[in-house]
Design a binder for these strands. Structure first.
Length: 574
DNA sequence: GCCGTTTTCGGCCCGACTGTTTTCAGTCG
């Protein structure tokens, strides 16, 4: 699935990583890192660009453009290959150990010949790090614990797990008398699909009791670092939480800073520097006099930098600064924009709640329309039959009378077979109000077969939405391999929507593919795929993913009024 | 290595905390 852009960007990033170990110029390393991001996020396929075309990519100059050309012709970059010979892959892996960065990795490699995490663990056991300059008893101890952490937990968690921890901590701290404001920031506020650590921000003039209350919370298993401005803990499940306490008047600048991303912050600070200003978590200051200009709200900080407020979901240095400067920021879709949900299940198949409970939950969300889409017969374990489906349709029509303000749609989630065929013939399919079609098996087909399969499903006039298109399960199953641009072109051509599935372990389409699909003219449906009443709450994660994909309300068919949606659904079969 | 109404050289975001040092380097975000 990797595009040339992604592969070239990964090589440039590797070049930066390798240079940081060999002690290359820090600014050169940063230049590579910036260019890697720009290449990964560039809308055009770099495989088709010449030197001049490549140099038009921001932060890509002569030298990096030539390296990308090198990649285009040879499939690799010569300098990367050379550095790989100097620095074994295992030495790079050492920098994955928390508290062990490039300098210490190079030290143990050069002084002791250590080139893997296992060798390092053994060397520490044998006491061979003793006496090495810069390696004291505490450092040794931290490395041992870092290796343990890396080998056990320490991996990123799903967004709902992080949100649960953040909500608990924010609720506890907000109740303290010293706390004036408290909120989560970081990658969770940006709604990244997985979260490495949770950032919590509090505003107060009296930080000490807050830090004490924080480290005394029942979920705290270990205190990693403790100061009056910043304290870090780890939960029993291995999730790190950083709490920063700032003066109340710094709230806006601090929220901007701690929301990140780091790449976005570098861009905003560069803008500040060019304007003779200095931006930190404490505010926006005059560089020379040090006088404070603004700091109370994020809006003020961005405004004084000459930018409109930028939604957290966009803050990845993925083109949002350029769009903001040009006045082209999208008005992102929100949960309030959603009028309906087009994908949900009941206990007729693998849901756990009966039809009436699911409909009541949808009504409680304030939806104007709601589709029940139980599985179709090709998923044999669900034991669906024509009669059962028709009986459910009758129940849906009867239930409609109880919900005059919400239109119930009867649909189904079809199974896309290995050849792209779906359950039921055209005649039976035409009886549904809406059909979602999804891949549920044969995940490992090669790219050509999978592409044909998805294109064929799009071309089926009865299929309105492709459900969880990549079929990935975050942390468990990789996305299927397809030529996504070809699939998206088929979806745009046939008027088939791509789903943004809100399940925290799906979030499918992922944000980067959403952006690619949108550029090709695709429309989307943000659905819960709810299998229980509680799953309706997951919609926030689907909306967050759609926002990271730069979607506006108009891109999303279930923000449309019912009449417009019906027109969209109907034109497919005429 | 990139960049430029401070343009072809001299800059390049900013701060907190830790550990090993006696004033600072390394790591992290």
């Amino acid at each position: 699935m990797a595009r040339a852009n992604d592969e070239a960007a990964a090589l440039i990033q590797e070049l930066a990583d390798l240079l940081s170990i060999t002690g290359g110029d820090a600014f050169k390393i940063r230049a590579y890192e910036k260019a890697a991001r720009a290449i990964a996020g560039h809308p055009d396929d770099i495989a088709g660009l010449d030197l001049a075309g490549l140099r038009k990519i921001p932060t890509v100059g002569e030298a990096i453009a030539k390296k990308v050309l090198d990649y285009n012709t040879t499939g690799t970059i010569r300098q990367v290959e050379e550095l790989r010979l100097q620095i074994p892959a295992g030495v790079r892996a050492l920098t994955e150990i928390p508290t062990l960065g490039p300098k210490k990795a190079l030290a143990v490699y050069e002084e002791l010949g250590i080139s893997s995490v296992d060798e390092l663990a053994t060397a520490i056991q044998e006491g061979r790090l003793r006496g090495l300059k810069g390696f004291g008893a505490k450092t040794e101890d931290n490395i041992v614990r870092g290796i343990e952490l890396m080998r056990s937990a320490g991996e990123r968690v799903l967004v709902d797990a992080a949100a649960g921890v953040a909500d608990e901590i924010v609720a506890a701290l907000a109740a303290l008398p010293q706390v004036e404001r408290c909120a989560h920031a970081g990658s969770l506020r940006r709604m990244r699909e997985t979260i490495g650590d949770v950032d919590v921000l509090a505003a107060s003039r009296d930080p000490h009791p807050i830090m004490e209350a924080f480290t005394a919370l029942p979920l705290v298993a270990e205190v990693i670092a403790g100061g009056d401005k910043k304290t870090s803990i780890r939960t029993a499940k291995g999730l790190q939480v950083d709490l920063r306490v700032v003066p109340p008047e710094s709230w806006g600048a601090a929220l901007q800073y701690f929301t990140g991303s780091q790449a976005h912050n570098i861009r905003t600070r560069e803008i500040a520097v060019k304007a003779g200003l200095k931006l930190s978590e404490y505010g926006l200051f005059h560089a020379e006099s040090g006088d404070l200009i603004v700091s109370a709200t994020e809006e003020e900080v961005y405004e004084r930098l000459g930018l409109p407020w930028i939604h957290p979901a966009l803050r990845e240095d993925g083109g949002e600064i350029e769009a903001a400067l040009a006045g082209d920021l999208p008005r992102l879709v929100t949960a309030e924009d959603l009028r309906g949900d087009l994908h949900s299940h009941t206990d007729l198949t693998d849901g756990t709640a009966p039809l009436d409970a699911m409909v009541a939950a949808a009504h409680a969300r304030g939806l104007e329309y709601y589709a029940i889409t139980d599985h179709a017969p090709d998923l044999f374990m669900q034991r669906m039959t024509d009669d059962k489906m028709l009986a459910q349709r009758e129940q849906v029509r009867e239930l409609q009378g109880e919900y005059p303000g919400m239109t119930l749609l009867h649909g189904t989630e079809l199974n896309i077979g290995p050849d792209g065929e779906v359950d039921w013939d055209a005649d039976f399919l035409s009886g549904f109000d809406v059909c979602v079609a999804s891949v549920h098996s044969h995940f490992t087909q090669d790219q050509a077969a999978m592409t044909r399969r998805l294109v064929r499903a799009c071309e089926n006039p009865h299929v309105h939405v492709i459900g969880h298109p990549t079929a990935r399960s975050i942390g468990r199953r990789p996305p299927v391999d397809a030529d996504w641009d070809e699939v998206f072109r088929a979806a745009a051509r046939t008027g088939t929507a791509m789903e943004v599935d809100s399940f925290p372990d799906r979030l499918d389409l992922p944000a980067d593919l959403i952006r690619r699909a949108k550029r090709l003219g695709v429309v989307f449906a943000i659905d819960t795929d709810a299998h229980s009443v509680g799953h309706h709450r997951n919609i926030r994660y689907g909306v967050g993913t759609a926002q990271r994909g730069w979607l506006t309300p108009d891109d999303v068919i279930n923000t449309w009024p019912l009449d417009r949606l019906r027109t969209f659904l109907a034109k497919r079969t005429t």
